[in-house]
Design a protein around this nucleic acid. Structure first.
Lengths: 198, 198
DNA sequence: CTAATTGTGGACCGAACGGTCCCGAAACAC
DNA sequence: GTGTTTCGGGACCGTTCGGTCCACAATTAG
């Protein structure tokens, strides 16, 4: 049940070394979960997409659920880093940076797939405390990032506004999934300006 | 594949009449989909919850997917009616009514299960045009209801603000599913005030 | 070299999947 | 009553599910 250490460097001990890149395989699994959801993704499709056999799969990740957790942790780290970078690269001024942030949250490179973590929260969190906790940490990190961008001097005073901005962007993910035209999504995000000032 | 008419009244033709209430059964199925999601709900669990046999199930609804569609249409109608009623019953004034509406959207009697339609949009819409269309109609109806409440005189001018308010409430569904404390949800919805004025 | 250790493909497991079918029971028209 | 029609419990269909296991290949240490 316990997955062996994923990040084990090629060790000095004997034995055949792993014939695949665990992170690359994890990325492939992540993409499939992102595209299809957790329950709808079968072991066969998963191992095929990851390019490894069932044995390697279980030896390396322990279970289907284990792959999901590992993939979500990786996704969260990558997404938060990318988010912070885009906010940093945006033109100066809190307002422009928040706009950039919200657009990135509303369109996390996933096209109509939305945000992997949000999808998994919706699908699994009510019955899976581990996923719920992971999702909560991610959302709180996003809230904190928005708060720091909004009011660098006193981020904790901007917490409620930051959370509302995050919720607005998260809500547009649902709108987009339902097929709402992009220009309406943009117009919706533009309303965020009203939420930025205390 | 085509489901027989669900709303067939006890007809004048011979034959044994249906031994169960189709709407009651549909409600039971709806509750299960709401609690578990679509893919995670098996035929056996579904028929057991609905209190009917597999034969009756397929004779009456055609398929698992057919039950989902019928349940979602029913859910949408009921939810929109309840939403309009609650807005009507709230204390007068657009602001108070919008608050009531958003709270109802953010907590559609589902506890941590959120909104059935939103759940299904997230899980299925990208691969299921029928569900996507159904979800879009529901979301647009909510947007229109908010717009009418916000600016009865010129609802179409309030469309963007109304959609942003809806998105804000939809976003809090994700926050709640991830286990965010209720008082923060409330504080988030309170920020909606800023979105109400043009 | 040999011995020890680990990765890997694929066969295999029992269970559960969504869906179909049949036949006895039940309720109608007459 | 008889004839007709539909209902519904449950057996059954082939497929697929997540997961286990094993024999063999590959690679190491010494």
């Amino acid at each position: 049940m316990t997955a062996p250490d994923l990040h084990a460097e090629p060790p000095a001990c004997p034995g055949r070394p792993r014939g695949f890149d665990a992170e690359r395989a994890l990325d492939a699994g992540l993409q499939l979960f992102w595209r299809q959801g957790y329950e709808a993704t079968s072991l066969e499709a998963l191992t095929q997409a990851m390019g490894i056999s069932r044995s390697s799969f279980y030896a390396c990740f322990g279970s289907k659920h284990g792959v999901l957790v590992a993939a979500l942790e990786r996704y969260s780290a990558i997404a938060l880093t990318a988010l912070a970078a885009r906010a940093e690269a945006a033109e100066a001024g809190p307002q422009a940076r928040i706009r950039t942030l919200l657009e990135a949250i509303a369109d996390p490179q996933g096209g109509p797939r939305g945000c992997l973590l949000t999808n998994c929260i919706t699908e699994l969190a009510p019955h899976d405390p581990e996923i719920a906790a992971l999702g909560r940490r991610h959302l709180e990190a996003i809230e904190a990032l928005i708060a720091r961008t909004l009011a660098p001097a006193a981020p904790q005073e901007a917490a409620d506004r930051a959370r509302a901005l995050a919720a607005l962007a998260l809500g547009t993910l649902t709108l987009r999934k339902a097929g709402m035209p992009p220009e309406r999504i943009t117009a919706t995000l533009a309303q965020a300006d009203a939420l930025m000032h205390p």
